[in-house]
Amino acid sequence: MKYSQLETTALATVCVLILATTAIGFAPGRRSSSSQPPQRLASPTLGPHFKTTSPDISSPSTLIPTAPIESAMAEVISSQQGLPQDFRPPVDFYSRGSRIRDRDGPRDFYFTRAIYSGYGYRRMGSWAIDFPKADRQFLWGLRRLTNINAYEAENAVRLTDPDLRSFPFLYALEVGRMALTDSEVEALRAYLLAGGFLMIDDFWGTYEWQNFEFEIRRVLPEHPIVEISLDHPLFSTFYTIEELVQVPSVRIARYGGVTWERDGYVPHVRGIFDDKGRLLVVINWNTDLGDAWEWAEDPYYPLPYSTFAYQLAVNTIIYALSH
């Protein structure tokens, strides 16, 4: 693993900030005693596969272990209802209107989560996995690590919402359960062809791939899905990523064991390009970046996973904003 001192410090700072903020937002009386031992940080499946470097600063350094803050971790695990109130979106995210939500006007970037139809999963549907904590924690990191003028809160928009096209970056996960309606297919196709960018995350194995492939074929039947190799600019726009890491779900990451789920043994980053070579869709398969963002503050969540998840997502966003 090669890290620059600067990046490592930045990432560590982000995690500490997230921890501190989360800790402040939760009631102290609800601390749990089910904390995990710190040695679980070192997952045996991670070390050899994880290797990133900064494109500009080549001095190697080591990861800084996150200090365990048991109380904060316990609160996060126990409930997602304890989110800081000042992060509530100012308008109902089901029906976004203007992008202007305060007097400063629209931000330069909204981390927009796609609300799509799918097989039921929890109360809100599969689109809402990790929502909104993962989005918020990722935005904390994004704003800290880059100078992107990003909107601080989550921004979930239905695929059929006309305002979707006001947000050229779209994130969707658990697409193994996706079942798009015809109007959603039409809207997503128009979104992508008009200039939108879709980042897919958190689906595993052959069955879920086939489901997603079926759905995305309905959207973009004319463009093939191709493997994106590590020499693609996607892996070097901000951080230089030299190896793909399989980011497991939080339960596996925290407790150790194999990193795959179902038959999704190998992580892939695939893409769909248009005729002019523009990348329309980035597909993170057999990996779960969202969980890594969501649990980045967890002292028992392995830092290499969250670091990689942040790096790949930051790269993807900067790539989408510049290509």
Binding site: D108, F109, T146, N147, I148, N149, P168, A320, L321, S322
Partner: peptide, 29 residues
């Protein structure tokens, strides 16, 4: 000065214009 959609869309707008060569310097951090 910072990443925003203008860069991507402007580059795309000029992608087929061989008479304009746009070099981008984008502050990312």
């Amino acid at each position: 000065g910072m990443p925003r959609h203008d860069v991507a869309f402007l580059r795309r707008a000029l992608s087929e214009d061989h008479n304009l060569q746009l070099t981008v310097l984008q502050g990312t951090a």
